[in-house]
Amino acid sequence: MKKMFKLQWLSVLMLAFVLVGCGAKEDTNKETVSKEDQQVEKTSYKVKDDRGVEVEFNAVPKTIVSLQPSNTEILFALGVGDKIVGATEFDTYPEEAKKIERVSSSTTFDSERILALKPDVVIAYTTGGDDENLNALKVLEDAGIKVFAIKSATSFDDVYGDIQQVASVMGIEDKGEKLNEDIKAKIAEVQAKVKDVKAKNVYLEISPKPDIYTTGSGTFQQEILNAANVKNVFADLKSWPKVSEEDVIAKNPEVILTTVNYTENPAAEILARDGWNSITAIQNKAVYFIDPDISNRPGPRIGEAVELIAKAVYPELFK
């Protein structure tokens, strides 16, 4: 019987967020550069993960198990996605990721299957502190599998750190720097278009009635909203607060965005809610669905996330 170990997720509500990130430093003893693909061939080098553990590699990993969709996206964006031999059921981007063997569900990973795959490294995650996920991952380490854990990201800087961290593990630091430069350029391009517009009041819904949740300050989503030059009507609250219908009505947002992807036509459901017809966004039918895989996932598509929000709120600026 396969042993399944429970992962530490933020909550069932937050499964789509899969927040991961923080930077790390590397210690390299020897390296040579391949002219063909510019990948750094390293011997006996160490990279510190977000547990503070210096993970030592005798060579650049050739096979990887990724236990977080955002890390999978990073690996593909760095050009080494073909090395992933195991991933989670939520690894859906890019298209090639769907073909990778699933070794993890939303709450558990199959330790026996991971051991059978014999990956050179498991790129895992931690929420910080002494979480159950790290205890479960210790089983893999005790069996001789290298585990590199990355802390949950809460900012763009964390994402940039994640990218550089993964690039260091894979011996392609230059590609990590270039990817970060491209992402920052994309965000700057969007910001140049929205910088002079009067910021609109926006309500972002991440869970529908009867238990309505939104995003507040101190979240990755708030930083996306800030970068798109929109005002979050619930920025005075922290984290992912539960709010009432009366709270939303009182805030009277000009635009409503929803990342709910588990109900049929979430935008139409919001438009049809009883008592909401006094809200400006409802009157103007300014209610839009935003792809949660882009807007909630702290990975290399954060530039696209900013553009997605900006286009929804200020479509006239992107014609």
Results as ranks from 00 to 15, higher is better:
M1K: 03
W9I: 15
L19K: 09
V20D: 10
A24M: 08
E26D: 12
E31H: 06
V33A: 04
E36I: 01
E36Q: 05
D37F: 03
K42S: 11
K42F: 08
Y45P: 07
G52Q: 09
V53H: 13
E56W: 11
I74Q: 05
I74E: 07
I84L: 01
I84M: 01
T88H: 14
F90D: 15
P94S: 09
E95V: 14
K118V: 00
V122K: 01
V122D: 00
E132W: 11
N133G: 13
L137I: 09
V139N: 12
G144V: 06
I145C: 05
S155F: 11
V159H: 04
Y160H: 08
D162F: 06
I163T: 04
Q165K: 15
G171F: 04
D174M: 08
G176D: 13
I183M: 15
I183K: 07
A192W: 14
K195Q: 15
K198V: 14
V202G: 00
D211C: 01
Y213D: 01
Y213F: 13
G218H: 02
Q222R: 04
F234C: 02
D236A: 13
S239L: 14
I270V: 12
A272Y: 02
I282G: 01
V287L: 01
F289A: 10
I290Q: 06
D291Q: 11
S295L: 13
G299F: 04
P300F: 10
G303I: 08
V306F: 02
